[in-house]
Nucleic acid binder design. Structure first.
Lengths: 226, 226
DNA sequence: AGAACGCTTTGTTCTGCACCAAAATATGCC
DNA sequence: GGCATATTTTGGTGCAGAACAAAGCGTTCT
């Protein structure tokens, strides 16, 4: 006994329904204020305050004050990754939230995972890039090939900006609904931003659902054929 | 809100210290009786009984009765994987168990992760196999190459037995202490068994620590050079 | 300056649950 | 059959912590 890391502490932090709701809400990648979180989790403001303090203590989220607002966000992609693994497990066990919400199919179709594209659209993008040799899988991680660079630049993506962002550039991120990988890392974030900037899709308010326009979806599928 | 899987339920299950101890003990891959678990987790037998019932309800462990004993084990490698990810996170946050035990360095050197080799020795084996082209990383998972098959057979491993075991054959498993991948899946289990059968190493009682003999370590390092 | 807003602290209530003792049930051994 | 061992059920105790109301700070707007 008494071997290894203390998983009970972290798990207990995630294990409270209210805190789990807060974390799920933050999976959108957006920084939210305390009142927004209160609304999201269905609890009063003081209760949120107590919870975020604990979550910060556990290194799961970060808070920064701006004026009279205080924004909270996940502490990083590693937290998002942990949550996705847990979601994958819970989904596999059939522990979907009490009565899957009306947006559930939309959520499976396309959603934002921390800050990159997930769901069917996410794995499609990943598979397309991989299938054309634009991404390469090495033992030490995922990487963008030179052909991949050329392709993305030719599409109008600002690669220099992406390269300057926080590494790693590419990251395998396990998708809970598809049970396959999609693209994370700064390139994943860059491509998500690209899609929003092009107006192909928008993110529904107070939700992780990514809604493609009809035209946007067509263009997206042309850019990432299977 | 009310989107996606219910992570709170699973997390709460893992979040109780006693249950976390039970799960950690079962990470050895061995099936343990209720009384053994009671000793391991430092609680009374009736308390264990309540806990295992909940863990079974959550799909985390399985129980099977044999005579007047009842053995419990993890529900599968996916559970072990989830736990390893949580351990990785907890370790990264510095949440090591209150005062790292005396066996902590040994645990990092070589331990059993569910049923395969983890720790420094585990990633060494993985890197060695990968570096010589015996394992191949594909988008749809890890696979054993034909050269890899030849090599393992020439070493005396019973590949037909391994192939008959529950798939997948190869699996990436993230190592919490090394923060890199080691080999899971039925091949990972087969290699662990192989090492024990050859007498290169033994598993310390009531522990996940794998102790190599001096000679065993030399032979192991010769079989898996870097 | 005063009012309005956003968040946190304090204090209190209350539910949930981990825990064990004792009794009940099940299995194996002689 | 009767005793020993292993596990589960039942019942009761006690504590941890989740929740909110009310009050306390701090910032912004007019």
């Amino acid at each position: 006994m008494k071997e290894g890391p203390d998983i009970a502490h972290v798990a207990a932090l995630i294990g409270d329904p209210a805190r789990a709701n807060i974390l799920t809400a933050l999976m959108s990648g957006k920084a939210l204020t305390a009142t927004e979180l209160a609304c999201e989790a269905g609890i009063a403001a003081p209760t949120v305050s107590g919870h975020v303090r604990k979550l910060m203590g556990g290194g799961l989220i970060l808070g920064c004050s701006q004026g009279r607002h205080r924004y909270f966000q996940l502490a990083g992609p590693h937290v998002a990754n942990l949550l996705e693994v847990m979601m994958g497990f819970a989904a596999a066990q059939g522990y979907l939230r009490t009565r899957p919400g009306p947006r559930d199919p939309a959520l499976r179709a396309a959603r934002v995972c921390y800050r990159h594209l997930a769901g069917e659209a996410g794995v499609r993008m990943y598979d397309s890039l991989m299938g054309r040799g634009f991404l390469a899988l090495a033992p030490d991680g995922l990487s963008l090939t030179t052909q991949g660079e050329d392709f993305l630049v030719s599409c109008g993506l600002d690669l220099t900006g992406v390269n300057k962002a926080r590494p790693p550039l590419c990251r395998n991120c396990l998708d809970w609904s598809e049970r396959r990988f999609h693209l994370g890392g700064s390139l994943g974030r860059g491509l998500m931003d690209f899609i929003f900037q092009k107006g192909w899709a928008t993110q529904l308010p107070r939700s992780r659902v990514v809604h493609f326009t009809q035209k946007g979806r067509r263009t997206f599928e042309k850019m990432f054929p299977l």
